[in-house]
Structures are given as structure tokens and as C-alpha cells.
Design a protein around this nucleic acid. Sequence first.
RNA 1: GCCCGCGUGGUGUAGCGGUUAUCAUGAGGGGUUGUCGAUCCCUCGACCCGGGUUCGAUUCCCGGCGCGGGCGCCA
Length: 482
Amino acid sequence: MRCLDVQRVLPPNMAKETVWHPTSFRSHTLGQIQDGGSDLVGSQVTICGFMEANRGKGKICFMDLRDGTGRLQVFLKEGLVSDPELECAQNLSRESTVQVVGDVAQKRPPKVAEGEPVPPPTYEVVAKSFTVLTEAATPLPLGVTDTVSIGLDTRLDNRFLDLRRAHVGAMFTLRARVLQYGREYLISEGFKEINSPKIIASASEGGTNLFPMMYFDTPAFLSQSPQLYKQLTVLGGMERVFEIGPAFRAEKHDTYRHLNEFISFDIEAAWMNDDDVMGVQERMINHIWQSVADNDMDQIEIVNKYRETQGDDPITVDVPSLPFPRISYCDAIKMIQDSGESIEWGADIESSHCDIIAEKYPGFHFIPRWPMEMKPFYIHHIEGENGATGEQLSRGFDLNYGRDEMTSGGQREHDVEILEQNLRNKGLDPSGFGFYTDGFRYGAPPHAGWGLGVARLLMVLTGSRNVRETVLFPRDRQRVTP
RNA sequence: GCCCGCGUGGUGUAGCGGUUAUCAUGAGGGGUUGUCGAUCCCUCGACCCGGGUUCGAUUCCCGGCGCGGGCGCCA
């Protein structure tokens, strides 16, 4: 089984140097012919794809094919394929799927105006035989290549078609890359990936509303956060863990940045405080941005090409420099007050306030040291570390980008006595949290962590104005299908 | 939950108390063509639902449903 050994040797950058083995349906991807056509000229290939467009109704027909790797023109000519095949190709509806056997050839260069540079050679497949795999119904609920803009609701109702549009596909390719780079970075710092339960018996944090459900005969809830479980894992000695998983919140908000199901990128690490995990976070984000800039500018270009047609400014991938600015809660309040807004110490920093801070700090910035009173019971505080008017500060922080909150995190309380007092201070009964507080009774390392909204991070990277742009099948107040 | 706005062919839009309801894209048919945002000719397709005002409502009013924006809250 020698061939298996060969295949175990993976290329250094899996994302960019994918090995496309032939399948039962095709010998080559369209991307392979697009990029490596010069080596393939004259050889026979079998390709598959969606038919994006067909031109020509007489003795010849040009067909634009698209698969998940690229686009390619197929040339059909009377005499080279059978008459029924040619007619079938000419009458085929857009987005039908086809299989073509033919020879790779260099395309005839397009006519260019006098003095214009001749473009580099491109390649096509001259068909020998042509098979329709499935015929697409007409008309399409939305045009994959049409120039008309399409409402978000129509797009989400027909996401399978929307996703075929170049810039939409690029957005989700970028999403996959962001997750990949985030993972690989945390692994490089010793973090291990975990999975925590999404069906839970009690709330992880106060405040947010839960989706109730029946777990056989027991009332239960969908998890709003992996918080308590990732902490229990660290208490179990796993040292550094991360999870990329769903969180569910039954809140009736209706904004560009809220969903009722979202993917949270969470970490938790022993022997760290809030400053330490802020360091992890900014290094991770820096790595993600750097990796996108190094590997994925082709996807950014696709997005920008579309943005140009919509009159939007192109997006740029500016790798944020380290460290990110840190504006403590107290300083943030002062900044807001100095701008003339009335805000009291102890109040939440709202979106309009974030606009004020974002004027000075438009990119990523941390807001550490929130009042203890505003943070959940599991957040750590240092006795005597007080704000301007004497209130106890916490070791909780947020990460914002512009006006939008990306992350909430902090050092956790590891002293079980204080933890139980915190619960009582919040009006919660410690006996209901025994499964959690018991984890602290037999030795507990100081630890810290954060949760990052993946879709919100993607909004920043892709310049999206609605979180739904970066989520395949968003769940909001009025949408549970598809 | 509150405030504001919108609902017109498959898609995205213009417009109006009486119109042949605009434009683009699309779909169907045909011609030409190594085309590439193909092109040319012909054809097709729409006023969210219910009630009210009116001689007459797609247009005005009320209710419903759906959608969008802002706010609250959060990741």
C-alpha cells in the first residue's frame, strides 16, 4: 500500500495547496485547468460543473462552467459533438449541472484595442461529449450572475443559490479560513479543542433568556454559553482549552449584529489573568489577519469586485499592530463624559457611546476593568481595586472593534467562598450551582478566558454591515428556515 | 418590546384617485456569430391580504401579515 504513504505527506499549507484527487465524475477540477492549463494542452479531461452561461445558437456554442474551484469555458462545435448534444447544450437552462469530456486547448485571445496589452493566455476545454447531469428549473428565484441587487430575505430563503454567487462564496471561504487560522494559532500556544454539552439543566450566566426544551421527562435548556463547562475542564487540569460551538439566546433583539444562535469562539486557560488572555486574543487576531493577508487576498479581491458594483469602498486587510489599545472602563466613561454625553459611573457603555470611543480608537481595542456589579458572578475581582467613585472593579473586559463588541472575557473567580458570595450578591442560590462550585473545592488554579463572536469578527474582516452576511443559515427572531 | 419606513412581473425597481403600469435583469422562440457582461428581432410576466372611503383604489384610511432601519440588550 505504497500509495497511502505518499498521500500521508501533506503539503505545508493545506489551504493553498490542496490535493484534488480525481473522482468518479471528473478527472480534473476547473481550477486545475484554469491555473495549470499550459501543462494540460492537448490532453483529454473530464470535468463537471454548474452551467453559468451559454452563448451561441448556431453551429457553435460557448459554455461557462463553474465548480467549487474555479470557472472555465467549454467550446462545443458542430462535428466535434453530436447534433443532439449540441442542441441540448444550447437550450440548457442556467445553473444546470453538466459533465464534459474534451481536450484542453488555449483560448483564442479576445480582441483588444490598438495599443492595449495582450492578456496572458487562458485555457478552455473543447468538448468531445457532453452530458446533462441535472437540469435547473426556470426561472431561478435569484440570478447567480445577474447584475440586479437582491434583497437579503430573498437571498436567505434561497441560500443554496445565493451561495453560488462569487462574492458570497468568497465570504464563506474567508469564514472557513478565519476558523482555521484561529484554531492553528491557539493550538500553537498549547490549547486543546474541546466540546461541551449544548443541552443543559440550568443557566450558565444570569441575564439572558434561555430556550427551554424537554430532555425526555426533565425540563432543560439550550446552552447560552460554554462558560461553566470550559472552566470545569480547566479545573480538571486540561491547562488550556478552546471550543468553537453554538450558543443559543432567546432574546428578542432585532439588529444587524444579533442572532439567536451564534458560533462562539471560546478559550479558557489556567494560571492566567485577564491581561494574559487579552494577550492570547490579540496575538490570535493578529495571526488571523496576517494569514488572510498572506494567503487569501484572492477571496478579498472577489469581494471587492462585487463591492465596486455596489458603490462600496474596497475592503483592505490591515494587520492590526500589537498590543491593541486598552481603555479601562473608568477612562472610557471619562472620555464619554468629556465629549458632552451624560453617563454615570456604573452605567453600561452603549452603542452611541462606543461611537465616541471609536472616533479615537477605530480598530480593535480592549475595555478592561468593568465594575464588578456589572459582570457575571464567575468574574474575579481584587479586593480594594476600586473605581473613581469607590466601587469595586472586576477583572472582566470587552474587546470592541469600532462600535461593535466582539468579545467578553476576564479572569475567573477561583476561590469557592468568594464564588458563592458572588452568587448570593447576584440574587442566585449557590445550591443550584453545585455541579459547578464543587469543581472548585479540591484545588483550583487561577484561570481566565474569553468568548469571541465569530460572525462579528467576520463582519470586520469582510466589511459586512449585517451579521447575516457571514452566517450560512442565520437564526433570528423571525427565521428558523431554511 | 418601543419608534420610523416599506410591500409593484422570477429578481431589483419607477410611478399614479381613472395609465396600454416604467426601466433593468430574467424566461420562451428565432437569426447571426471564436463568443466571453455575446449580439439582433419577436414574445411572456406584477400592484401582499382583508375591510372602509369613493362613481372608480395598485394609489387614500384602518386592521392583519411580511420585510427593512434605529433603540434597548448582548457575542
